[in-house]
């Protein structure tokens, strides 16, 4: 018997207006794991995450989440089951305030008291957001928007958090801060699937990794093994 996976993806294919961006991806994430999905620009990482979160319908293949078939289920359904995506480019609502963005994260919940506590948790995690809670999200810096996007996803109390390029376009110090937070979230027991172009940072954070190339998974191994692999070092670590 294999370990019970939280998320299982079999033969996933996704087409974008005629282009087959993902051409048969198999991957699995067990409860409590931190898994990295790395690869070059255009390898199909973002498209894979969009399909996993229900933003894009798969052309073929199957998605299983918590043992149930969720292939083709829309995003608003999956987030209710505890599967949440922090999209590429952050996707904050620019003309909602920071607090309103966070409230949108808790849209699926009714437990007012607990929601208030989660607001405090997010503000404790990101003091910058607490200072700016009444400010429009569009006026925040890139790093602050990334904090907001992650904090907003946490407001839904996800079991599985998909993170798409959290370090993109951020200054090195901010990248460090974001990755510290990612590790803190994982330490709370949230399962993570992390897409990154910064392969070194991703593999140092995660326990396992998948490498994508031209829409396919070409390597799957423990993070340590991937970091040591000559193929990965040459292609993604610039050696």
């Amino acid at each position: 018997m294999s370990a019970p996976y939280l998320l299982e993806v079999c033969g996933l294919e996704v087409a974008y207006g005629g282009i087959r961006a993902v051409q048969g991806v198999d991957l699995a994430v067990a409860s409590g794991e931190i898994v990295a999905l790395i690869g070059a620009n255009g390898a199909g990482k973002t498209t894979t995450l969009k399909a996993l979160s229900g933003l894009l319908p798969p052309k073929s293949g199957s998605l299983r989440y918590e043992g149930a078939d969720v292939t083709g289920k829309p995003a608003y359904h999956l987030v209710r089951k505890g599967l949440s995506l922090v999209p590429e480019g952050r996707g904050v609502f620019p003309r909602l305030t920071v607090a309103e963005n966070l409230a949108m994260g808790a849209y699926i919940r009714n437990d007012r008291h607990e929601i208030r506590r989660d607001f405090d948790r997010v503000y404790a995690l990101f003091a910058r957001l607490a200072e700016r809670r009444e400010q429009l999200a569009g006026t925040l810096s890139g790093g602050e928007q990334q904090m907001l996007a992650i904090g907003r996803a946490m407001m839904s109390r996800p079991k599985l958090l998909l993170l798409d390029e959290p370090s993109m376009g951020l200054a090195p110090l901010m990248v460090q801060k974001i990755f510290e937070t990612v590790r803190a979230i994982a330490a709370e027991g949230v399962t993570l699937l992390l897409v990154e172009q910064n392969a070194k940072l991703a593999l140092e954070t995660c326990s396992r990794g998948y490498v994508m190339e031209s829409g396919r998974v070409v390597l799957a191994d423990s993070a340590a093994a991937l970091l040591a692999s000559p193929q990965v070092r040459r292609a993604y670590l610039g050696e």
């Binding site: 933003l55 608003y76 995506l85």
Partner: peptide, 24 residues
């Protein structure tokens, strides 16, 4: 209201509103 906020969110980014659990 909660629905009003969902309306504004949908207006600004329907895909992300969907990620929040809003049925657009």
């Amino acid at each position: 209201s909660r629905m009003g906020r969902a309306m504004r969110a949908t207006e600004q980014n329907p895909d992300v509103a969907g990620l929040m659990g809003v049925n657009v």
